[in-house]
Each structure stands twice: as structure tokens, then as C-alpha cells.
Nucleic acid binder design. Structure first.
Lengths: 150, 150
DNA sequence: TTCGATGCAAATAGTTTGCATTCTA
DNA sequence: TAGAATGCAAACTATTTGCATCGAA
């Protein structure tokens, strides 16, 4: 599973693609971010050094990286999709109040998965759409919910 | 749990609202539809009889009905949200290939819910965001996936 | 020197909002 | 007849696309 900037750029090249300044910058930002970033956030990171990279270019680079299965995107609820490097697949718990995201191993869902498959022939894809709900801090009546801007 | 057109209109009136032709039509269409409908689908249904009801009006009526907890909306994946009358809360399994939706009782998730709460203090809200995956028919290698237009 | 990648602008989908007008209560 | 609800157009957010230009190989 390639995770360094050079590995990722090599993979792009190996797929017949070209290594350009925007691609270097997007891949670099993605590796540095080490987590979930939206296309908009990624564009902002890239523009620190390369102010005129277009957001559509960032989308296109992300699409290409996804096609090569180097990057994955998740829908964390309302709002834009988040992208991250393709690691071992994991599910996302998203708090609808504070927007915090917790990653949890798919293995935790083994029982439910078995049940859904047995009862409904349905194989869930936990990695691509989050499970939304409320986290501990935001349910605590005592503590104030730590609401975060979107 | 009010589910007849008159009950719903009464509830709107009781909340200080007014009963208008668009409201009658939207509530009627929602009751007739007996399932998940998008705002666009609902608008089309309403326009059979009342051709100049604006889609923004449908959204506003749906918002008001949700505020009164008479209607609920679900995000079934990509694409528009779906609305339905507020019945006993249920989760939605959505096939990413054929877009078919299966409703299943939240009770099925009891174990997972307990686990997520114990391990992460997280209380999932299965009713508001679907669980996506692939249904039996679409995984069958023999049968052709029955892909449906969006 | 070719053709893949980019920047820019415009298109798209889904939803929301501002405002003048309509119509219920 | 007050003010809630509506229609219409425009704004908005997230994303995609067309096209002329640029630049990596």
C-alpha cells in the first residue's frame, strides 16, 4: 500500500500519467494531512505554495488517484466528501453535533454484517458512507456540546 | 402518529399554520406515495393536479412537516434526500448498483448499537442516513445487475 | 512534438432564500 | 385585513465538464 509521496507519484507515472506540479502538490498535501480532507481543504493547502491550482484540477487528481485505488472518499453526512489515502478499510462514526469523526475497524461490524447478509442478502459497504449519530460529549447533559463549524 | 391527510392538516393548523391548496396537495401526495419520495418526485405528483406549485414551496412544506415531526427525511446515498411520513423509525439498506431500498427495523441493530455506545460513547442514528452496499441480485455473478436510473 | 494535464468559465444537481404578491383565518 | 404562505428568480454548495492552452515525456 503506497503511502509516501514518491510511491504515489510513481504509481501515477506507472499508470501512464504524468507527474506535474499540481499533482506533486496535491499528493504532498494529502500525505501531510494524514486524515480526512475535503477537496476544498486540500485546495487551500495546495494553494499555500501553488496559488493558482484550480479546484477542478484537485477534483480531477483525486478522481485519478481513486481510479488507481490509492485514495478513497467518504461521505461523512451533509457537506462535502472527504478524501484520504487508501489504507485498511475502516468505518466512520460522525457526530452530527460537533462533526467529529472516529474511525473504527470494519471487524467491529462482523456480526451485523453477517446478519444483514443472511437476512437480506445485503453486503454493506461501511467505508464509503459514514454512520452518523451523537458522540459522548455532545450527549452529556452536563457538558456543553462542542459544536464545530462546517 | 397522525397518518391521514386530515390528521396532518389538522396538525399544521394546530401549530398555528394555514391550510392552503399546495399544503393539501403535498400532504395528499405524501400519504398516497406510502414510501420514500424525493422533493422532485413529490413536486411532480403535486403538479398532476396543481401545475404551478413551486418546488421551493414543496421544500418549505416538507421543512415545516419535519419541524412538527410528522415527516422525516433520509439520505439514501448520492442524489436527493427522500421524505416519508414519520412512522416507527427504521433503517435503510440501499444498493449502490440498483438503488433499491429495503427498510429494516432498528431493533436489528441492537447489538451493534450497544457495542458502539460501550466502546465509543457513540449513539448512532440509523434512520437519517442509509447503510449502503450491494443487494443479493446485484452481487449474483450469474444474474445481470438490475441497474435502475436515478 | 505529441497528447495528457491544467486553468478558467460555465454547466449541473439539490436545496435555500429574498421579495413582491396572494389568500387563509 | 394582518401576516402566513406562495411563485419566481436568483443565490448557494459541491461537483463536473468543455475547451483552449500548456508542458512532461
Amino acid at each position: 500500500m503506497p503511502e509516501s509521496v514518491d510511491d504515489l507519484l510513481d504509481a501515477l507515472r506507472a499508470a501512464g500519467g504524468r507527474v506535474t506540479a499540481p499533482r506533486r502538490a496535491v499528493v504532498g498535501a494529502l500525505v501531510d494531512a494524514k486524515g480526512h480532507v475535503t477537496a476544498e481543504e486540500l485546495t487551500a493547502l495546495v494553494r499555500d505554495k501553488h496559488p493558482d491550482v484550480a479546484e477542478s484540477t484537485v477534483y480531477r487528481i483525486l478522481d485519478e488517484l481513486e481510479r488507481l485505488e490509492l485514495v478513497v472518499h467518504v461521505h461523512l453526512g451533509h457537506g462535502p466528501a472527504s478524501y484520504h489515502l487508501a489504507q485498511t478499510p475502516h468505518a466512520h462514526l460522525v457526530c452530527t453535533t460537533c462533526n467529529r469523526v472516529v474511525e473504527i475497524p470494519i471487524a467491529r461490524f462482523a456480526r451485523l454484517t453477517r446478519q444483514l447478509e443472511t437476512d437480506h442478502g445485503f453486503v454493506p459497504d461501511y467505508a464509503h458512507f459514514a454512520i452518523v449519530g451523537r458522540c459522548e460529549a455532545c450527549r452529556e447533559p452536563a457538558r456543553r456540546p462542542r459544536r464545530q463549524p462546517r
